[in-house]
Design a protein around this nucleic acid. Structure first.
Length: 277
DNA sequence: GGACAGGGTTACG
DNA sequence: CGTAACCCTGTC
């Protein structure tokens, strides 16, 4: 167990921010599976409690949750005249950009296209149960690691049928094969700049502009990546008619994208609870 | 019951 | 460069 006071952190906000699909709310926190690891996170007596050893926390989760980055700094850099972003950042003030495993993120966001979150989660759960390694957590409960590329790259579209992926099955298999034969090298991808990495990712089947940006932001931690999905497009149309001020927010626009995304989905609820409407 | 849309990408015109 | 088609499930 690791107990810690942490600022700019809210596991529920992160869970609802759309960057991960294997995190679920529990009584006073959340449980999550990342790669082949399981973690419970609980909020108790003003402290966050993590169900892992100090060693695992230091080696894995510290980086996963991006705890070494100061998010107050990003919020302070928001233009105070940018009232929409000021409100969005206040609403999602506990959001951090996770450092997720690359292959898992690639496949997860291929699944996310033309799809809703409930179904994305279900698809990922089923593909993991069918093709991921069966493991046991510290409570002796069974869970399933995300499938390895060695497994998925050897499947046929028929094998994925029960996962309910639809036309995305072909993308998953083609992309897995392309990576496994070295058409795109994940280890080099990690070392590339945002632009280079994005250009490489787009070479893969089923990855276009938006999914590539999601992978850059949520796995490669290029926090200047700014994925534009239908919700963010709405935000830009409503609040940034003259274009989003990328120059002003250069270097961390992706963090703001997350605040805006969360605010779009949960903002009204937030305003209601804080008595602002 | 059928029509439609859901955090896009691809393959055509 | 714009637009239809792609698959599957949930919802109305």
């Amino acid at each position: 167990m690791v107990k810690q006071r942490i600022t700019d952190f809210d596991i529920h906000q992160i869970s609802n921010s759309g960057q991960c699909f294997r995190m679920d709310k529990t009584d006073n926190g959340a449980m999550l599976i990342a790669g082949d690891r399981y973690l419970d996170v609980i909020y108790k007596d003003d402290e966050w409690v993590f169900s892992c050893s100090q060693k695992e926390f230091d080696e894995v989760w510290q980086h996963y949750f991006d705890f070494n980055t100061n998010y107050s700094k990003f919020k302070e850099m928001i233009d105070t005249n940018d009232s929409y972003m000021m409100k969005a950042a206040e609403c999602g003030s506990g959001i951090r950009i996770l450092n997720q495993e690359l292959y898992e993120t690639i496949i997860s966001f291929i699944i996310s296209q033309q799809n809703n979150i409930t179904r994305i989660k279900k698809c990922i759960r089923v593909i993991s149960e069918k093709f991921g390694e069966e493991k046991k957590n510290y409570k002796d409960e069974i869970y399933y690691a995300f499938p390895k590329i060695e497994v998925l790259s050897k499947l046929n579209e028929e094998d994925l049928k029960e996962c309910g992926l639809g036309y995305r099955s072909r993308y998953i298999i083609e992309t897995s094969r392309a990576i496994s034969i070295g058409f795109v090298d994940l280890n080099s991808l990690i070392k590339m700049s945002y632009e280079e990495a994005k250009n490489e990712l787009i070479k893969l089947s089923g990855i276009g502009n938006k999914v590539a940006d999601c992978v850059c932001l949520f796995a490669l931690h290029h926090i200047d990546a700014f994925p534009i999905d239908t919700h963010i497009r709405d935000v830009l149309n409503r609040h940034y008619k003259d274009g989003f001020p990328m120059e002003r927010y250069e270097g961390f626009a992706g963090v703001l994208q997350q605040y805006a995304f969360y605010y779009e989905i949960y903002g009204e609820k937030f305003l209601r609870l804080s008595g602002k409407i």
